[in-house]
Design a protein around this nucleic acid. Structure first.
Lengths: 221, 221
DNA sequence: TTCTGTGAATTTATTCACAGCA
DNA sequence: TGCTGTGAATAAATTCACAGAA
């Protein structure tokens, strides 16, 4: 029986939850490497990321056979493989739209740089901010999005503007050729399905918690 | 046949993904109410939040029968019910630990206030920041966490310190009686299971996107 | 008729449990 | 022996499809 064409180690497609866990594994590798571990078992990795060991093994096995039976996984190899899988071997070109409090924080936030991401251009509607340079990043006027994003070949955009303006900004970004968006505005964006969107709603994280706190208050009574 | 004891409209417990969607519905209600809609159907709500209509109905039905067959849901009623379910009818006492770039942004971030959350106290290790007041919120020294959190009866904490310090901060918070934590540090926190933790890793959102971008680059070739 | 509420069917994800290799 | 890789079993979430109320 002929095998189906397969470009990746596993031809079936990877479950979303698995992809969402990869960055967590990556953090764990850094931690283990820092503590001079050269090898980790699925059990250790599971412990460090609060996940079932079988789940860890299955997640990793989607991408190839990285482990050694009886031994475990080589931390360095796994770290390198995982970076490759997540596409972190190249420097992605990122833009930030909205330099309010949140935008400013994201611009200065060390976590992006540490993970290897660099913001190439920032945008804001406020004329008093335009022209400034912060953390080596020039702030442009929002109407310049189409031109600048296209010129700089920006691939990923972070939206940190009020919800009322988010869709318009997204339209411009898409028009300028952006391929993915992280949206911090609390609204759903409509974009062509070739463009990827991930929404991050900070307030909803708190609401998720208050749901459980409220529930435990109720059942306690 | 005797009915099983049931405190909530539905006695089975609510799926996690359902809870995660509730805040999204809440945003939609606000939007529909703003556009003078008094009634919405599951289809409209689904369209606005990018979810299957049957899913919307099932989600809402976990909490009671809020709709009218043939008509739809009353926006105001649903909004109010949803706020009650999420525990948003009371003002939760929140603390912020870490007033670096991200912490400062969260302190000033309008989204929390808009959702009805208010930060009562902030903490930082930097002595030059201690004593300042920002957005009406006093910044305390980090070692004061135990005392201030206890005195102010803080229930929820937001951690925005470097990963290396996050666990220590979490220990202090737990010790001071905090019941839930939103953790922005890219690490897993160990806390008693009575304490709720939600991790938000901003870099991992980007990594999630680069995974798909990288993959589409590969398959395009 | 329209649209909700919900069992049943389906799809998807997690966990188990063990064969196979170092 | 110890630990991976993975089919099989289980659990969970989503979607279908339709009965029932306005």
């Amino acid at each position: 029986m002929a095998k189906k064409t397969t470009s990746s180690p596993k031809h079936r497609n990877i479950p979303e939850p698995t992809i969402a866990r990869l960055p967590r594994y990556l953090r764990s590798f850094a931690e283990f490497a820092h503590n001079q571990h050269t090898v980790i078992s699925s059990k250790e990795l599971a412990g460090a990321s609060g996940i079932n060991p079988a789940q860890v093994r299955k997640d990793l096995a989607y991408f190839g056979q990285f482990g050694q039976r009886g031994i475990g996984y080589d931390v360095k190899t796994l770290d390198s493989k995982m970076r490759e899988i997540l596409g972190l071997h190249k420097a992605w070109r990122i833009a930030l739209v909205g330099c309010g409090n949140l935008g400013m924080a994201l611009l200065q936030y060390g976590g992006f740089a540490k993970a290897g991401f660099r913001i190439e251009a920032a945008f804001d509607v406020d004329p008093s901010k335009v022209g400034w340079e912060l953390e080596g990043v020039r702030i442009w006027a929002t109407p310049a999005i189409r031109q600048v994003v296209r010129e700089k070949k920006i691939e990923i955009a972070i939206i940190a503007v009020p919800a009322s303006q988010a869709q318009r900004v997204a339209d411009d970004l898409v028009d300028a050729g952006v391929r993915a968006i992280v949206n911090f505005a609390p609204c759903v964006l409509t974009v062509p399905k070739s463009v990827l969107v991930r929404g991050v709603d900070l307030a909803s994280e708190l609401e998720h918690l208050t749901y459980f706190l409220e529930k435990s208050n109720r059942t306690e009574k």
